[in-house]
Write a protein that binds this DNA or RNA. Sequence first.
RNA 1: GCCCGGGUGGUGAAAUUGGUAGACACAAGAGACUUAAAAUCUCUCGGCUUAUGGCUGUACGGGUUCGAUUCCCGUCCCGGGCACCA
Length: 869
Amino acid sequence: MQDKYAPADIERAAQTHWNKTGAARAVEDTSKPKYYCLSMFPYPSGKLHMGHVRNYTIGDVLSRFHKMQGFNVMQPMGWDAFGMPAENAALANNVPPAGWTYSNIDYMRKQLQSLGFAIDWEREFATCTPEYYRWEQWLFTRLYEKGLVYKKLGTVNWDPVDHTVLANEQVIDGRGWRSGALIEKREIPMYYMKITAYAEELLTELDNLPGWPEQVRLMQKNWIGKSTGVRFAFPLADNADEQLWVFTTRADTIMGVTFVAVAAEHPLAMRAAAGNPELANFIEECKKGGVAEADIATMEKKGMPTGIYVSHPLTGEQVEVWVGNYVLMSYGDGAVMAVPAHDERDFAFALKYNLPIKQVVAVDGESFSDQAWAESYADKIKGKLVNSGKYDGLGYEAAVDAISADLSAKQLGDKKTQFRLRDWGISRQRYWGCPIPIIHCSTCGDVPVPDDQLPVVLPENVEITGAGSPLAKMPEFYECKCPKCGGDARRETDTMDTFFESSWYFLRYACPDNTMAMVDERVQYWCKGGIDQYIGGIEHAILHLLYSRFFTKLMRDVGLIGDLGEPFANLLTQGMVVAPTFYRDLDGGKKLWLNPADVDVVTDEKGRPTGATLKSDGLPVVIGGTEKMSKSKNNGVDPQALIDQYGADTARLFIMFASPPDQSLEWSDAGVEGAYRFLRRLWKTTYDHVQAGLVDTKFAQDSLSTAQADLRRKLHQTMGKVADDYGRRKQFNTAIAAVMELLNAYDKCDLTNATGRKLAQETLESIALLLFPIVPHIGQALFAELKPGLDAGVQAFPKADPAALKQDEIELMVQVNGKLRSSIRVAAEADKASIEAAALASEGAVKFMEGKPAKKVVVVPGRLVNIVV
RNA sequence: GCCCGGGUGGUGAAAUUGGUAGACACAAGAGACUUAAAAUCUCUCGGCUUAUGGCUGUACGGGUUCGAUUCCCGUCCCGGGCACCA
């Protein structure tokens, strides 16, 4: 055995061994329970970042642990290869997106392999290849025929200078990121997936996902946003045949309506604007800015009257229609009733424009008094109706029932269930994505590309200019014949949202080699009951996970995957790896983001940052917020240096030890040294034992000294704890801490006699196996030294021996009035009365009871005694 | 703005079901070994204090309880998502 821990050597040897034995190869085998362990596949952005290392180490620990527990494990890997960064790189460096992507994949694959993950590389694929995306084109045409894909107008960010559609990320403070031009909203035709048809199932099935974090289920539930309310109409004052429809969850307040607000794009607004230049200007103003909801929701609420009046459906009273910049055309009917007395936003709006405020709900008879009252009252309280004619005195539910019944009788409305969830617009006016398989024919309309003409292959020789859609400038791509009539036609030049690819890749891993079908029966083996563990960033809690659930249901209903309806049985959402951001302001409001590795942070004596300078020029830079590591903020930390210097095991150990997986992790280099030191110490400890000679582990429990029995108890407690931490709690930091404690105890224990050496052998063998899932290379090497010829990865995970766990005497804490005052040692099986007596007699208890009698004594078995005086 | 999380020593964190707050580490300081350095080992390490003890302390303000980092109400701050970043 080498006396020094040499990670480079043992990692190379272990990886060679695993490759040679096909250790990570997954083959269907019905004799064992399967364990499909999936980590979210990476976007090939260039090189691995810390978030990847964290994500894939978690997956690897769970995979290796379950393999040792007897499962047939599959851990695949692939590439989410379409996306904007490839086009950005093309613009910046004049490299073709395909070439850029494939070379990134090659580099990142090597990095993943150097980390020693037990990945079945024979299942690898990239989503940008026709072999992959042809199947989603095929599915798209099936869904189009079923009516689950349809075309309608959608609103996008339009850059009027570059004449191009921008992603929300490319709109910075309302301006285009390259042109600096003020962004406008523009409506263009797009294809939509009818996810709302599955809203109810996507919602109810959340209750059948006990393996998902409550947090994620709640976020999805709120996102789908089922609400029951009333949809009703205001007839137009000058033409009762025409109606303005709205939806409300507060139909009880309908008698308090003092105006109606519509979106700028609403037909009524457009009509009113025709003869009203001022209003037309206002509507134009509403079109300024991007489409991101966060921006719309935080901007100043503005409005303007249209001069159009509608009749209140119950009172016939005239109510004016306003245009409001906060009303979204894409929600419901693009119009809302306004009840300033009972809605915060309406209240603020009414105050600003001097509109009437009419209280119609009261709690405990309180009546509207002043502005402050209304602010605290609005939107919060349901009570009894007042000022509402025949509805006075009714509570919320009775009022909604009565009002909706009256509306229904007049055929002006009814109760309705509404979802916040909107259909999924999938058209992108970009190049590096999957072409939408539709052909536009002037006589036949939109025609899906027939199966025998699939795939529609994305051309790879392309010029990226940043202005307009590249495919729309390539006649050799878009000129085609109509599959129906054979006449000249134009191919769709939009590509699909890249969420399309990531919504089904996990099913394709079961059968990546199938050239005849999207998926096959192997999905039934690997995905039965759902993928056993899915691991990925919490930032995907809503969109990616919801789309994947939706796709699974779509594919089920197309008959592709049997009755599989939910893709992920267990979900672990890892926290973000975050890092500080640094920038310098450039001309035109742009920012130059600087990598933390290139910046020196200046701190005060308390360790608080006071400023930062760029290493290369020593001049100050601005410290931004601490945010998730991302390409756009240039705050990613490259793990490669860490791997090169210390080896994969140290990198894996450190990142697992730094914090529990679901917590966000602020990156810092400090502590890496400690992880390395621990591995070195473990190596040295094992080396010392091996040098003294290997022994067997057969000995009688009662031949151990008290100290040795204590160590052996700790060893077997640690086995239970680590298995529980890996399997149930998924808290790897505490598992590592427990092994560190064990090694500390080992060092302090005298193990020089014959039994002691056997206990040493037992302890070191166990530690190698306990840590194997986290640090497999050193685990493999140490176990092979301790048990020559044996392979750590195929051993059963250590299991605690009940005889070792037995304890005669235990320590209990003694509190007086809830404060810790002393401790007592009692027999493990001592009864309550004798524990109470011992506690009352203890020195600390006597002192702090000050002679007063005990009013009450609480005994918590195995923990403490609390004496109340 | 809305939805979801989080806030514990100088730092990362632990406390699993309401029961010993700070395990395990990092950093720092002191010492041993060494010609010296590195490595290694030992000790100290929340704050205050009249120090073998006592008081206090888990963002802040309240509450429930014999007992609260944990449960409830309110406030502040930080992070994630908000439908075209992935």
